[in-house]
């Protein structure tokens, strides 16, 4: 299962500072969309508005609409917690829960949201770890602490934890920036597999990565210091990297700035 996301006229603020302005885009189900652009241009902020994580920061707020299959996530009566169950997230730095074992980490989303019979949880843990290509490496030590794994394994553990709650959409905020090339490759392969089940959105600073994994790419930029970030261009990845419509996009991907 995966669903379409439609964003229209979205602004996000940190206190008085407007971080992103007037973003509109459509993200198709069962695809990988990459956000690229220089640091501080609002890619991560925008990503966090999609599952209402932005408002967790004190003083942060959002204006505009985010529709998930026709339902406005920012409607007044929507419970943010339920939005985050539908739209999972993987962070830049692997952050397994340090008090929990590998098994408990993957089961955390289920267990913290209600009671489930052990057999169900066992099944979902195995399925999620297999889904994250980690099962073979950890199946004999599920009761060891999650923090004892290597960085790349920890990040795949976090992906397993995110997909265990069976979200529709998976948001990934620079998931490979803290990893070595081999682990990065493992996660990129994983994304290609997960694409059939989830809508995936990834923020990345690595343009080769965006070119390798994504179907669509959005280029973010800001007009100047202190100005809000905007989407300059969004198109099929092959087009963005070969024949972008905007001069700024071309300058960025060819390495002339940023």
């Amino acid at each position: 299962m995966s669903q379409q996301i439609q964003v229209s006229g979205l602004d996000a603020y940190y206190g008085k500072h407007k971080a992103i302005e007037d973003i509109s885009m459509t993200i198709e189900p069962q695809s990988i969309t990459a956000f690229i652009g220089p640091s501080g241009c609002g890619k991560s902020t925008f990503l966090r508005t999609l599952n209402r994580m932005h408002e967790v920061i004190p003083g942060a707020r959002v204006e505009g609409k985010v529709m998930l299959d026709g339902e406005d996530l920012y409607a007044a009566d929507v419970e943010p917690v339920s939005v985050r169950r539908m739209i999972g997230m993987v962070f830049q730095r692997p952050n397994p829960f340090p008090t929990m074992s590998i098994y408990e980490n993957v089961a955390a989303g289920l267990r913290l949201n209600g009671r489930h019979p052990k057999s169900t949880v066992d099944g979902i843990v195995e399925e999620s770890l297999k889904g994250a290509n980690l099962w073979n490496e950890v199946k004999d030590r599920l009761n060891r602490p999650g923090a004892g794994l290597s960085g790349g394994q920890q990040q795949r553990l976090c992906i397993a934890r995110a997909i265990a709650v069976k979200p529709e959409v998976l948001l990934m905020d620079e998931p490979c920036s803290a990893l070595d090339p081999i682990s990065t490759l493992a996660i990129e392969d994983l994304m290609a597999e997960l694409k059939s089940r989830f809508t995936i959105i990834i923020v990345t600073h690595n343009m080769q990565q965006a070119a390798r994994v994504s179907d669509r790419t959005a280029f973010f930029n800001l007009a100047g210091q202190g100005q809000p970030g905007r989407v300059i261009e969004m198109d099929d990845t092959s087009r963005i990297f070969t024949n972008p419509a905007q001069q700024a996009t071309e300058d960025y991907i060819t390495g002339r700035f940023g």
Partner: peptide
């Protein structure tokens, strides 16, 4: 670390 709180929120935990 705030990371842990965010990881938990992102799983839909109140």
């Amino acid at each position: 670390p705030n990371d842990l709180r965010e990881a938990s929120y992102a799983l839909g935990v109140p």
